Simulated scan of single mutants.
Amino acid sequence: MNIEGLTLAPLLWELNAKLTGGRIDKIFQPDDYTLVIWVRQPHETLRLIISVNPASPCLYLSDTPPENPAIPSAFCMLLRKHLVDGRIAAVTQHGLDRIAYITIDVRDESRRYRQ
């Protein structure tokens, strides 16, 4: 099913309401096209599934995430390095584009040790 910007807008509005302020706890990459991001909110953990599969792209919250590989990919390790412990500031879109923007605030750990 193709999703246009008009259909994506209410989805992103709902995801913004649920995810804003949440801390990224874990990131997994079950396959080449899919990311699973665990977002910790007070009293609950949400699992955001992002798939960019050309045949069926999707963006949703799930109770049962897909199975994860034993060895993470290099891309997944890079995302973990930069995004884990970050806080989701907003989930938005520009106008009615079909692009979802997830703004994440992260602390710069390298500044902590500078004098």
Rank of each mutant, 00 (worst) to 15 (best):
M1H: 03
N2F: 09
N2S: 04
N2C: 01
E4W: 02
E4L: 06
E4G: 04
L6R: 02
T7K: 05
L8G: 01
L8E: 05
A9R: 06
A9K: 09
A9F: 03
E14K: 08
A17V: 06
K18R: 14
L19N: 00
T20C: 04
G22M: 04
R23L: 09
R23I: 09
I24V: 10
I24G: 01
D25Y: 00
D25F: 08
I27G: 04
F28A: 06
P30W: 00
D32I: 00
D32R: 01
D32W: 02
Y33E: 00
Y33L: 00
T34V: 02
L35I: 01
I37K: 03
I37L: 00
W38L: 06
R40L: 11
R40V: 04
H43Y: 07
L46A: 01
L46K: 06
R47L: 03
R47H: 10
L48F: 03
L48P: 01
I49N: 01
I50G: 01
I50P: 00
S51Y: 01
S51E: 02
V52M: 08
V52P: 02
V52R: 13
S56E: 13
P57R: 04
P57H: 13
L59Q: 13
Y60G: 11
L61P: 07
T64L: 08
P66I: 05
N68L: 12
I71L: 12
I71M: 11
I71T: 15
P72C: 09
P72N: 12
F75S: 15
F75H: 12
F75D: 15
L79A: 09
R80T: 02
R80F: 09
R80N: 10
K81L: 15
V84T: 13
V84I: 15
D85W: 14
G86S: 15
G86E: 14
A89W: 05
A89R: 14
A89L: 15
V91T: 08
V91G: 05
T92Q: 15
T92I: 09
Q93W: 02
H94W: 11
G95W: 05
G95L: 10
G95A: 10
G95S: 08
D97Q: 11
R98S: 15
R98E: 11
I99L: 07
I99A: 12
A100E: 13
I102E: 10
T103L: 07
I104T: 02
D105R: 12
D105H: 11
R107H: 09
R107C: 08
D108Q: 13
D108K: 07
E109A: 14
E109K: 11
R111Q: 09
Y113Q: 06
Y113D: 09
Q115K: 14
Q115T: 12
Q115C: 10
